[in-house]
Simulated scan of single mutants.
Amino acid sequence: MRVAPKIELTDEERAALTKLWRSGLTSVRLAQRARIILLADQGLNNKDIAAQLGIGRMQPARWRERYLQGGIKAIERDLPRGAPPVKVDVAQLVQLTTQSSPEAITHWSTRKMGTLLGVSASTVMRHWHAHGLKPHLVHSFKVSRDPQFAQKLEDIVGLYMSPPEHALVLCCDEKSQVQALDRTQPGLPLKKGRAQTMTHDYKRHGTTTLFAALNVLDGQVISQCQQRHTHVQWLKFLKQIDRETPKDKTLHLIADNYATHKHPVVQDWLAKHPRFHMHFTPTSASWLNMVERFFRDLTTERLRRGVFTSVPQLVAAIDEYVAHHNTNPKPFIWTKSARDILQKVIRANSRLSSKQNGTLH
């Protein structure tokens, strides 16, 4: 049976420890350590000291040993906690993250990087956060190669930031192949401690195409759902715009380069309606069309979690959303100048060219 080493204090040591124990300026931890040594001096074993002070049995043993080795100074210092922190070569971590990938995998995770460098995943995450690195994210992009990009950009941004008088600027596009999706089983509603649930699989009940025209001035939306999206349906939508807008207003329509928008039949109709002026976005630059922002809101707020057992039900939901939007519309405000956008595109093209030539690292 192991016996704790005895502690026999001198009168001076006993007085000093008693002063530490009773002083209101002493920290709670140091006062407790002094009390442990005083009780040990009275002949109590570690088990009895722990029971009397309401602490773990190891603490009296630890501080008894420390006092015997270094006296009062030894108990005034905290014991080192855990293993010493491992220093990270931050430059190496950043280089590996940005210029390499794990074997057979597309990107790093905190655990894989930590295993490679011999540090914890939380350490890797801390340095990634400090350097703005997010290997788990990827953003899609497409730089326009349209030879008339600058002219089309200035034209459209000019309409946004300085619209002509006595005219309406309408951003038009189709949201094609909107699916009427029904879930295979009923989901559970949101409740405290549990998110709303939906089955991962679904039943398809057909599709519809939403034609929409967003009024840049006030945010109002003119919409129409149709089964197809050929030039016939596009022309039908143009006629709806003609009916639902003031006849004394010139109309500037912003659209993408989809072939139906430039069909000869559509061109003939536009020629007979001179108040319509078409403005086409540059190739691969649909982000210039502000109606895409409305489509995103429609998708996230109404369609993504919707359950539709038929196309008519889907169309009714879209019409209801548009009607609700139009009761209190808010326009999207364009703030970026054409010059700023053009400079950014030029920089992107330059970097892409360097990457293709193998000079960007």
Rank of each mutant, 00 (worst) to 15 (best):
M58A: 12
N46M: 02
D41P: 01
L39S: 00
I55M: 15
Q42C: 04
Q32K: 09
G56R: 14
L53H: 01
M58W: 11
G54I: 10
A31K: 13
A50R: 07
N45I: 02
Y67R: 09
Q42K: 08
D48W: 01
D41H: 14
L30H: 04
Q59S: 13
L53Y: 04
G43E: 14
R64Q: 14
A40H: 06
R66V: 15
G43Q: 11
I36H: 02
D41T: 03
W63N: 02
R62M: 11
D48M: 09
G54H: 06
G43R: 09
A34R: 00
N46W: 00
N46Q: 12
Q32C: 09
R33D: 08
L44Y: 10
L53E: 04
R33E: 06
Q59E: 12
D41S: 09
D48T: 12
D41R: 03
A50H: 11
L44H: 13
Q52W: 01
L39Y: 03
Y67S: 13
I49D: 00
W63M: 05
R33Q: 11
A34K: 01
N45R: 06
Q42N: 05
R35K: 14
N46P: 01
I36F: 03
L30M: 05
G43W: 08
L30V: 07
I49E: 01
I55G: 09
Q42I: 00
A34M: 05
R57A: 15
R35M: 04
R33L: 13
R33I: 08
R64I: 04
A51M: 08
L44F: 11
L30Q: 03
